[in-house]
Amino acid sequence: MTIVASGPAASTVAPADKGVGPLLRAWRERRRVSQLELALRADSSARHISFVETGRSRPSEEMVLRLAEHLEVPVRERNALLLAAGYAPRYPETPLDDPALGALRDGMERLIQGYEPYPALVVDAVYTVVAANRGITMLLDGVPESLMAPAPNAMRLTLHPEGLAPRIRNLREWRGHLLAQMERQIALHRSDALRELYEEVAAYPVPQEAGGDEPAESVAYFALPMRIEHEGRILSFVSSISTFNTPMDVTVAELAIETFLPADPATAKYLHALVM
């Protein structure tokens, strides 16, 4: 599966009824940082931070970016803060299929192919699959086309009753892990699209018999595995998620590469046998 353009993302728009002060205060409270602590981090004063948050002082563009960095504000929301303060957005949002991101696309393609036969994929901020290798294609064998087009979503593919969910032997545990992951992201990002996706997948029915079975032999997993049935075998994977360091583009900042590594020797042996 080659890299494709992701679906439309939410545009960067500053709330009309809020200036930069209330937005910064909301991010500070979300991060559970006091005005004094933020001031120390940003080489400022608690008094100045208070004035900025109440609108008594207009922060410079540099100060907005400095506070956003120390509050770990996502790149998309840094643009919103700049707009609310009366400045132009600093970070572009380049479509993934733009020629300017050609090197990025090629690099991600080589990276996920390099993980084969282990599954690996690339998703955007709302889990739209923008690239996947043959290991993922193997796991998705038999999933109906309605879930694959026009743009497959990793959460829907995994948790939908017609997707992978019936084949995941520890569905309740894995479902809980995925929903908790989304809850953390919702707490960190202001994303209506992500919240809508969460509400959708959280409402999918869970079969009474889902999960609870254990492997015949006791296996000491080093992380919560996804145990999935494939052609009569139970394969076990643990996932790892990577993002780009110090991204300067909204699109790049919201990409994540997820790899699934074998959680036991039997899974590794089976996957390597497929490519021999």
Results as ranks from 00 to 15, higher is better:
residue 227 R to I: 06
residue 144 P to R: 09
residue 173 E to A: 12
residue 28 R to L: 00
residue 30 R to W: 03
residue 69 E to G: 09
residue 1 M to C: 05
residue 118 Y to I: 07
residue 151 A to Y: 14
residue 8 P to S: 01
residue 163 G to M: 02
residue 268 A to V: 07
residue 127 Y to V: 13
residue 82 L to R: 09
residue 185 Q to T: 10
residue 154 A to L: 13
residue 168 I to C: 13
residue 193 A to G: 08
residue 158 T to S: 05
residue 53 E to Q: 06
residue 262 P to N: 00
residue 46 A to C: 08
residue 88 A to M: 13
residue 97 D to R: 03
residue 133 N to I: 09
residue 43 D to V: 14
residue 174 W to S: 11
residue 167 R to D: 08
residue 36 L to A: 11
residue 265 P to W: 08
residue 83 L to G: 03
residue 262 P to Y: 01
residue 229 E to I: 09
residue 248 M to I: 15
residue 82 L to C: 06
residue 20 V to R: 01
residue 45 S to A: 05
residue 152 P to Y: 00
residue 84 A to W: 02
residue 76 R to Y: 01
residue 82 L to N: 04
residue 197 L to D: 07
residue 256 A to Q: 07
residue 175 R to Q: 10
residue 112 I to M: 08
residue 143 V to L: 06
residue 23 L to M: 02
residue 215 P to A: 02
residue 167 R to A: 12
residue 261 L to C: 14
residue 247 P to G: 08
residue 263 A to K: 03
residue 169 R to Q: 13
residue 18 K to D: 12
residue 75 V to W: 00
residue 101 L to T: 09
residue 258 E to L: 06
residue 260 F to M: 15
residue 155 M to P: 03
residue 89 P to V: 01
residue 166 P to H: 10
residue 239 S to I: 13
residue 11 S to N: 13
residue 21 G to E: 00
residue 41 R to I: 04
residue 178 L to C: 09
residue 91 Y to D: 08
residue 205 P to L: 05
residue 172 R to N: 08
residue 186 I to T: 11
residue 2 T to E: 15
residue 255 L to W: 11
residue 7 G to T: 12
residue 261 L to E: 13
residue 50 S to W: 02
residue 84 A to Q: 00
residue 1 M to N: 08
residue 188 L to N: 11
residue 103 A to V: 14
residue 23 L to F: 01
residue 230 H to E: 14
residue 164 L to H: 12
residue 178 L to V: 06
residue 154 A to H: 11
residue 34 S to C: 00
residue 151 A to H: 13
residue 59 P to R: 03
residue 19 G to K: 07
residue 96 L to R: 00
residue 72 E to G: 01
residue 147 L to P: 00
residue 257 I to N: 03
residue 191 S to Y: 03
residue 30 R to I: 02
residue 77 E to K: 01
residue 62 E to L: 11
residue 87 Y to F: 06
residue 209 E to V: 03
residue 162 E to T: 05
residue 95 P to A: 02
residue 237 F to I: 08
residue 190 R to G: 09
residue 228 I to W: 06
residue 22 P to W: 03
residue 25 R to G: 00
residue 186 I to D: 13
residue 242 S to A: 15
residue 17 D to Y: 09
residue 158 T to E: 08
residue 268 A to R: 14
residue 187 A to P: 02
residue 102 G to P: 03
residue 10 A to H: 06
residue 237 F to N: 11
residue 170 N to A: 09
residue 33 V to T: 13
residue 70 H to D: 00
residue 242 S to W: 15
residue 149 A to Y: 08
residue 22 P to C: 01
residue 185 Q to G: 13
residue 41 R to G: 05
residue 8 P to N: 01
residue 210 A to P: 10
residue 45 S to Y: 04
residue 143 V to P: 07
residue 1 M to V: 10
residue 250 V to Y: 08
residue 6 S to W: 12
residue 251 T to Q: 04
residue 159 L to S: 04
residue 116 E to A: 07
residue 46 A to H: 02
residue 196 E to L: 14
residue 88 A to W: 10
residue 258 E to T: 10
residue 54 T to A: 04
residue 186 I to E: 12
residue 58 R to D: 12
residue 154 A to R: 09
residue 197 L to F: 05
residue 191 S to F: 05
residue 178 L to D: 07
residue 117 P to L: 03
